[in-house]
Every structure is written in C-alpha cells, then in structure tokens.
C-alpha cells in the first residue's frame, strides 16, 4: 500500500451563535510515503483545520461532522485517546506557523527536545540528550551544545523554526504536518528551511504535508499540490501539471494574482472574497467569484473528475470546456 494517509469525506464544523461555520467540507485527500504534498489556498480556506483534524486536535466548538482519517491503515478516529496521544509526536508530527509561541518559554530548547524523546521514544536522560544534540546538528544549528541550553527568547525566528523542526523529526515520524513553516521568515532563512525539509524527507523517507499560501514555496519543494477554496478541495495535481495546466478557475486566478521576480506580469487580483462559511452557498463555493459560472454551479457541488492521470478537478466548467474542444 502506498497511501500513508487517507482522508475520506472529511467535514469539520465550528458551532457558534450565528450557526455552524462549515470550515472543511467533504474533503478526500491522500498522501503517499515519502512525498511532499502542498496544501494551498487563501486564509480561511480550511488548510490548517484539515491538519488539525488529522491529528484529532479539533476541540469544541469545532466538531468532525463526517469522514475518516486512515493512517497506515489505522482509522485514527476510532483510536482511544491514549493511543492517539502516542501517535502524535511519534508517528505524526507538526511544525506550526509560530515557532516562538509553540515552544515552551520556561524550558531550554534542549530540554524540550530531550523530554519529547524520553516520553515518546522511551530513551534515558543521557540517550535523549545525545539524540537531541544530533537533531540540532541535523537542522544545522551552529554551536548546538550552547544553543541547547538557551531559552526560546534567546533564539532568532529562523533558529526557533529549526528547533521546531528538530523536535518534530526527533522521533522519526512518518508524516510531518508543516503549517506555513516559512511564513514570516526572511527569504534566505526560509530557503534554508525549505532545503532542510526536502533533504530530511529524502533522508528519512517521511512524508510532508506543507500548508502554505505561497505558490513559490510550493513550486520549490512539493511533489503534488492540493488547492482548497472555502473549505472545499477544488483541484489536486502533480506540481508540474498544476502550474502548467491548471484546470480549476480558482487555481488559475491564484497563479495570476501574485507578483513574481522571474518575469513581468500584469497583476489580476482574484475577484470577490472567500464566501462566509456560515450557510455557505450550496453548489460550488467559488461560483460567486468565478468568470465561468453556469446555472448548475450554484445548484449542486461539482464532482471530482480526472483531468489528466493523477490530476483531479472539481469544476462543471472544466468538463464542459473539455467536451467542446
């Protein structure tokens, strides 16, 4: 079996006074062993909620309404909390967007990593310490012996992010969920973090789900890309295919809306904004912003169809356009 993670029909709602926020809507997604999958979309498209749902970290008022997440054939939804806790950190790890707030300010960074190793890998204090230093070296932290004894506030943002990655990889997880790991970092530091992620994935065979809104980052390191809009998955394709033959109007709009260093472009912002996810429009949630909208787009949700091998898209317009050419 090559699918390491299989998300089927996942739906997550957040119940608030005004109604249910339908943050993730019937998503199907798989991640293969050793691959880097990019999950892209604007803010509020449900990218982070999806990764929290994988780790079963959705807390009230949030609720997984339907769907399942299988990891290595195990249905994560049916695991008792104690076993799920062992899964987190050991098999599935996460690197968050804000490394400084994710780290414990009262513990030295070395301590945080060795604690994790003692809990999840059952190492002795001494072994954990040794492995912790190895990890810090692996993520290229200069003078790891000195850094290990420092607190998060003594490290720069890029350094904290590397500590987070070291921590996430310390137990050799099979899946790493990286939520905007380079957002807010300077370009040269971000480039180093990306190189590091790719190298580590090759070295350890870990799969990575990279949540980002930066298409540059996606093109740089991802093997496959899934595009989300307003809680729905609209397209999923190998990275080359996605950039050369984007099939969904939203993906096309996303690519045209960014200024780029490598060529001169005419900027075309995506029209409209992400619809409210409380009582969202039925049918395709992009219909209100799309230049190709047809009557049936507003009525029912377009099914995922195969545009090319391994390339799926959810758009009635795509089917129509394909038939006519």
């Amino acid at each position: 079996m090559t699918e390491m993670l299989e998300i089927s029909d996942l739906t997550v709602h957040f119940q608030i006074n005004q109604g249910a926020i339908e943050a993730v809507d019937h998503i199907n997604l798989t991640i293969r062993r050793g691959e880097i999958l990019g999950l892209v979309g604007e803010s509020g498209s449900g990218k982070s909620v999806t990764s929290f749902a994988i780790l079963r970290l959705i807390r009230p008022p949030g609720r997984v309404v339907s769907g399942s997440v299988h990891f290595d054939g195990i249905d994560l939804g049916s695991l008792p909390e104690e076993q799920m806790r062992r899964m987190r950190g050991a098999k599935i790890a996460m690197v968050s967007q804000t490394p400084r707030t994710a780290l414990n300010p009262l513990l030295t960074v070395g301590r945080q990593i060795s604690r994790l190793l003692m809990v999840h890998a059952g190492l002795s204090t001494r072994e954990a310490e040794k492995r912790m230093l190895e990890m810090l070296r692996l993520v290229r932290i200069p003078a790891p012996e000195k850094r290990a004894n420092q607190y998060p506030h003594q490290l720069s943002g890029g350094m904290c992010q590397r500590v987070m990655i070291a921590m996430a990889l310390a137990t050799s997880p099979q899946l790493l969920l990286a939520d905007e790991p380079t957002t807010g970092l300077d370009v040269s530091i971000a480039a180093k973090i990306l190189d590091l992620l790719r190298e580590l994935s090759t070295k350890t065979g870990a799969a990575i789900m990279l949540v980002t809104h930066d298409l540059g980052v996606v093109a740089e390191i991802c093997d496959r890309v899934a595009v989300m809009h307003a809680g729905q998955l609209v397209e999923c394709a190998p990275v080359r295919d996605l950039f050369h033959n984007p099939a969904h109007p939203y993906t096309k709009a996303l690519v045209r809306s960014i200024p780029r260093v490598d060529r001169d472009v005419v900027l075309e912002p995506i029209s409209g904004s992400v619809p409210s996810l409380i009582n969202p429009p039925s049918g395709c949630r992009y219909a209100g912003r799309c230049e190709w909208t047809m009557d049936r787009c507003r009525v029912s949700r377009p099914p995922m169809v195969e545009a090319a091998p391994g390339h799926v898209v959810a758009c009635y317009g795509f089917e129509e356009r394909r038939v006519t050419c």
């Binding site: 971000a190 480039a191 540059g216 980052v217 093109a219 740089e220 950039f243 780029r260 260093v261 490598d262």
Partner: peptide, 14 residues
Amino acid sequence: RALLAAVPVPDPDA
C-alpha cells in the same frame, strides 16, 4: 545575488 537566489519562484521548472 544571494537574496534574489533565495526567493522561491512559482515555476517548478525554473
């Protein structure tokens, strides 16, 4: 030069 080289470009073939 290093700064420009570090910018990720949205083109997988770049």
